[in-house]
Amino acid sequence: MRENDLILQTVSKVAVFIILTFGVYLFLSGHHNPGGGFIGGLTLSSAFVLLYLAFDVESVNAGIPLNYKMVAAIGVLIAIFTGMGSLLFGRAFLSQSSAYFNLPVFGKTGFATVTLFESGIALGVVGVVITIMISISEDV
């Protein structure tokens, strides 16, 4: 689209990293602070949106060769199958549970199925938003 927006591109590269980091932070902190799967996912995808705005579609796609439809599909499947996991333990659909592990580096870490569920959500959101963006901007 635009070749000469060098400043925009440079700024974008930096901004994208900031946004990405922020997105991951939001995603992880969601359980106790503002944030969560949706917001994290949306933020992450807005980083990609920025990339697409700054660079043209082809070069971004070359850099990150992903089929985002499939990303979205996998996200949805993760969310659903996390929900169905509880069926294996004879619990109701979408029963979340959490456990604490002592990991070498992180120390005592809580791992909740919620996190898995939310990661599915986030993945789904990212996949969808980028699919939409790419579809329309490619066509234009």
Partner: peptide, 16 residues
Amino acid sequence: LTAIVISFAVTSFFLA
């Protein structure tokens, strides 16, 4: 929050 996301989905489809 749910409603916002849904309206986003609907709006983007409609725009397209």
